[in-house]
């Protein structure tokens, strides 16, 4: 009866930002990103990609509550980088990886269908 509407899980409410950024007040080069209407799918690939970055000292994400449809991504970097730079870099790298994956899959599909 009081269950939230199903679309609440993936439609960003009007007037809400998809991604908001908040600097840590005590530690330099540390910040939290709040990503609305995303879950483990995006949270985990972002975290793992951030771990590949040598300038990232800490990267983690959490889904605070199953009925709060957002994730928090926390990044701490060295002074060589910044949380924002690392975040952008991770997205760019993942994007390129998926481009490559798509091309590989299409090429393999063509090869496989030819061989039959």
């Amino acid at each position: 009866m009081n269950a939230p509407d199903r679309y609440e899980r993936f439609v960003v409410p009007e007037g809400t930002k998809k991604v908001s950024y908040e600097r840590d007040t005590k530690i330099i080069n540390a910040a939290s990103f709040t990503v609305e209407r995303e879950d483990h799918t995006v949270g985990n690939i972002l975290r793992m990609q951030l771990h590949r970055d040598d300038n990232v000292l800490f990267a983690g994400y959490k889904l605070p509550h199953p009925l709060q449809y957002k994730i928090l991504v926390r990044i701490h970097t060295t002074s060589q980088s910044s949380p924002m730079q690392a975040y952008n870099q991770a997205i760019n790298d993942l994007d390129k990886e998926l481009d490559h994956l798509k091309n590989s899959f299409e090429a393999e599909l063509a090869r496989f269908q030819r061989s039959f």
């Binding site: 930002k17 998809k18 991604v19 990103f33 799918t41 952008n88 997205i91 998926l98 798509k102 899959f105």
Partner: peptide, 21 residues
């Protein structure tokens, strides 16, 4: 599989930081 790759790319694109942020 191909659609899933496209959707995942779209999702990543949507979580890029906006200019005003």
């Amino acid at each position: 599989v191909l659609n899933a790759i496209d959707i995942l790319k779209q999702k990543l694109d949507a979580v890029r930081l906006s200019e005003d942020t």
